Amino acid sequence: MFIEFIQSLYDQSRPLPENPDDYTSILEDIEYFHLSATVYSLLKQQGRIEQTPIYFQNQLQKEYQTILYNNLYIKNQLKLVLDTFEANGISAIPLKGILFAETYFGHFSARRTTDIDILIRKEDMEKAKMCIQKLEYNVEGDSPSYHFHRTFSKMMPHSPVPLTIELHRDILRENSSSFEIEQFWKCSIPLEGYKHIKQLSEVHTFYMICLHGWKHGMDSLKYFIDIIQAIHVLNYKIDYNTLFKMAKNDHTLKRLTSTLTVVYNQFPHLNQINSFPFNKKSKIWWDYQEIRYGDRQSVKGFKNLIRVHLSEYDQFKHSMIFFKRWLFPNKLEITNLYPPSIKHKKYSIFRGYIKFYRKKFHTLFRALSYSKVKSQQKY
């Protein structure tokens, strides 16, 4: 029902559900995926909010107001950070978040935002880090060398959840592609009112949100809506042939085509806006029931992880690098996953590895058992 509801939001030839009882489950799904602000904004923009039940309207509006205040705080914090970078001559590009909502959804409150992501040149990272710390954000631990961002946080007023800032030097892990972040910088344009602060080009924005959705296994409808909204706004400005040539050169083509195939399969009206040149419906792996009701740490989640990283890296060596990192994490990653205890500090790393491999092999055993049962059921 929820997929059909989202289809009706973006394809207005489809009517909204007429049965008031349907909106109870739709509202549950909206809240599960944190889409209240987006759904409320789209219905208001289309003048169709009155076609929904009163209780549905009231709940959406209530949650929209909460998101409005949170996003306003984040918007002000983003401006403070960007102004600080500008004053210190640090080049930066805001990613997703508030700027994406304003540009592609029409208002900063039309899309729930929980953090601030900013692209920084590698050579400016330490300088940017000091600027962030002066704004009273705390560094959140260390990161492995192949990670492409540093994380900072501080508490938000009237919120139990802290505001997180991630400073990115890249958007993909090292040795997972041939992607060069410099292309994003070269094609970026100055953000209004700034000299050093840039905005991604339209093509690179679209490229980024597709790769971002893939990285998360398209495990939320919010990734679909980001891509759908961009397609509606950009329309023919996205030349898929040019985009796929870029992705082929970056060795991200399988990731890109897989993601867009899933989106177009669920929302076929997009072909009327910008026709998708691939047709791989027989290989669709995405399932709504799994992402909505399945356990993301389950056997299915484990099998999806294997599928993604065996079949959706363009080069076999990139798959092997992933599996090496996944099977043999370094001490820093183990420490972050299983912090040392005071009682067993001397053997904490060893204990961490034991916990890590016990969990991995338990899931693997369940996956193998599940596959065996399924194969027996076929016969």
Rank of each mutant, 00 (worst) to 15 (best):
L72C: 12
S109K: 08
T52D: 02
Q61R: 15
F108K: 06
L78T: 01
G106R: 08
I49R: 05
L60Q: 05
A87C: 02
I98W: 04
I93M: 02
H107L: 08
Q77Y: 03
K62I: 01
Q65A: 14
L72P: 12
Q57S: 02
I90T: 08
L80E: 12
S109F: 03
G106L: 07
I49P: 04
T66E: 11
I98Q: 02
K75M: 04
I74V: 11
I54E: 08
I74R: 13
K75E: 06
S109R: 10
I98K: 09
G97L: 07
P53N: 11
Y73I: 14
Y69R: 14
F100T: 00
A92E: 05
L82H: 10
G106W: 01
F85Q: 01
I98T: 13
Q77N: 05
L78I: 00
A101W: 00
L95N: 08
Q59F: 02
L80A: 01
N71M: 06
L68P: 02
I49W: 03
S109M: 07
Y64Q: 13
N71P: 15
E50I: 05
P53L: 12
E63Q: 15
I93C: 01
V81G: 01
T52V: 04
L60M: 10
P94K: 02
I98G: 12
E63W: 08
F56N: 05
F85D: 00
D83P: 10
E102L: 14
I49L: 09
K96I: 06
D83M: 07
H107C: 07
I74M: 09
F105G: 15
N76Q: 09
N88T: 06
